[in-house]
């Protein structure tokens, strides 16, 4: 026993170093489970206020670019208005009401909230950004986040007034996407290299893919409505031995200048999840 104490006293510095190092490594490699409880809660409380103050200043320098993006989005939305479309036979004119339910059975599935991005990173392998809405405003985990021009990330933790969003530029990010022109689906992820490009895999070769083709979110995603822009094909890697394409995609969102974000809420998510979970428990 005495020897143990002597040993500890003699090598106390080294042991203390090992303990600190192990604590750090534990946090690093157990981040997924760990962040739930402690880290992000504290992080958003402490750093959120500082980030918000900083963003107030930085905001003015990015106004021009943010404006341009918003104007573009407006234009796109105007083009989608139902007044723009007309069916030749006037008796069959269709329009959709925005009321939650109408007599034809249309219902609202997606609701949007707009938020400001108060801190952002593109430098790391795992990038996150913070938005200025939190649980108080109805933001919850696993909600999708869009920039004015396309998919941006997923909410992973919320505090009362802020939420942390896992950016698309995060190697843990996965998204189901499809080719806009033909509808084949595949998976999109980031390879950790360039902040302007993401990778798409598992796209079947049944349809030829060209440079410049548009990739949008698929109908299988529970976080985004279908048809949200992901990006355009920048390079097609044609692997002869495989039946699938690997695509390099230029992201629609400019992650270097992220100012505004829209949070998408799937109003049927809980129902869908409950239904799907019930099958899993029955197995």
């Amino acid at each position: 026993m005495r020897n143990i104490f002597l040993f500890i006293r003699r090598y106390f510095n080294f042991l203390f170093f090992m303990v600190m190092q192990l604590v750090a490594l534990y946090m690093l490699f157990h981040f997924n489970r760990f962040h739930e409880a402690a880290f992000l809660g504290v992080a958003s409380k402490v750093t959120g206020k500082v980030n918000e103050k900083y963003n107030n200043i930085e905001y003015y320098f990015k106004l021009k670019k943010a404006n341009e993006a918003l104007v573009k989005e407006n234009e796109e939305l105007r083009n989608r208005l139902h007044e723009n479309f007309d069916v030749p036979d006037t008796a069959l004119k269709m329009f959709r009401d925005t009321v939650a339910f109408d007599s034809l059975g249309h219902f609202r599935k997606w609701a949007y909230l707009s938020a400001k991005v108060i801190s952002n990173s593109v430098n790391f392998q795992n990038n996150y950004f913070t938005i200025n809405l939190g649980s108080k405003h109805g933001i919850r985990k696993e909600m999708g986040v869009m920039s004015p021009s396309g998919v941006a990330g997923t909410v992973i933790n919320t505090s009362e007034n802020m939420a942390i969003v896992m950016s698309m530029l995060n190697i843990q990010f996965r998204l189901s996407a499809k080719l806009k022109k033909s509808g084949e689906t595949g998976a999109v992820f980031w390879d950790g290299k360039n902040a302007s490009y993401v990778t798409m895999i598992n796209l079947p070769k049944s349809m030829p893919v060209n440079k410049g083709d548009t990739i949008v979110t698929s109908q299988y995603s529970t976080r985004y409505p279908q048809g949200v822009m992901v990006g355009t094909v920048a390079e097609v890697v044609d692997d002869k031995s495989s039946n699938f394409y690997t695509l390099k995609i230029k992201t629609a969102t400019d992650f270097y200048n992220l100012e505004h974000a829209n949070i998408v809420q799937n109003l049927f998510r809980d129902e869908q999840k409950k239904l799907e979970d019930s099958i899993k428990t029955n197995e």
Binding site: M20, Q21, V23, A24, L25, M27, L28, A43, F124
Partner: peptide, 30 residues
């Protein structure tokens, strides 16, 4: 030396709070 190690850990962790990468900079600083 113990204080130095501890300061290193805390300093790295503070940066980790800002970059949301728990333990990464803390490990290097320690």
């Amino acid at each position: 030396r113990v204080t130095l190690t501890l300061v290193g850990f805390l300093f790295g962790l503070t940066l980790d709070f800002f970059t949301v990468s728990p333990g990464l900079h803390a490990a290097a600083c320690t």
